[in-house]
């Protein structure tokens, strides 16, 4: 339990890193690292190592930690953007929002009617905090790539919730979600590239021109 909480704590720290950094590569790296951490977690939760668990863990770690970030990095290079400039919600405010969100998640999780074996674990607060972080990134950032990272972090939060039910839901469901996500990111990567070529910009604010 202690090791798991440490990993979740690190993942929560990475949320804040993603919120506070202005450079896209560091957001992507934080997301990737969080993905790897999440991939390891099932190994700590399951006591009887089946080959299935190991396979899913490896797949998650590779998918979230290598494949998706790799795609994002390619899209970033193709689009020649390095930095988030002038976000809707500034970096300090979003960092503070994330921090207050994390504290609030800890406080809320204490008052939830959780199973006794989950009461001491950070799974629920971690999940809530990650989802909140994802929301803040989705709302507050301008560049499509950081929004994708926000979406990924949001998904990581859902994954953490899923770990609560690891005994009753097969990991295969999660694997399916992951597959969907990978395809989605792949598509976004392509679209980003196309948008960049067509409009010379990845600023989502400018996409509102297309609404008609």
């Amino acid at each position: 339990m202690r090791d798991l909480n440490l990993l979740i704590g690190l993942a929560m720290g990475l949320n804040l890193v993603a919120l506070g950094s202005s450079r896209l590569p560091s957001i992507i790296r934080a997301t990737a690292l969080q993905g790897v951490l999440l991939g390891i977690m099932p190994l700590l939760l399951e006591h009887d190592f089946g080959w299935q668990v190991v396979a899913v863990a490896v797949a998650t770690a590779i998918g979230k930690g290598v494949v998706i970030p790799g795609l994002l990095q390619r899209a970033m290079r193709a689009a020649h953007i390095e930095r988030e400039v002038e976000p809707f919600i500034g970096f300090v405010p979003s960092l503070l929002l994330g921090a207050f969100g994390t504290i609030a998640a800890l406080a809320v999780a204490r008052s939830l009617p959780l199973l006794p074996e989950h009461a001491k674990s950070l799974l629920v607060p971690g999940a809530l905090a990650s989802m909140l972080t994802g929301f803040v990134l989705l709302i507050g950032r301008v560049k499509a790539i950081s929004q994708v990272c926000g979406y990924l972090i949001f998904e990581n939060g859902i994954y953490l919730f899923g770990l609560l039910l690891i005994g009753s839901t097969p990991l295969l469901v999660e694997a399916g979600v992951l597959l969907d996500l990978t395809v989605g990111i792949f598509v976004i990567g392509i679209i980003v590239d196309r948008i960049q070529r067509a409009f010379d910009s990845l600023d989502t604010r400018k996409l509102t021109v297309l609404r008609e």
Binding site: L16, G20, F91, V92, L96, T102, I103
Partner: peptide, 15 residues
């Protein structure tokens, strides 16, 4: 960028 780092140090201590 200094305020960001300062905020980080506050948050580190708060956490």
């Amino acid at each position: 960028r200094v305020p960001l780092l300062l905020t980080t140090s506050v948050l580190l201590c708060v956490f």
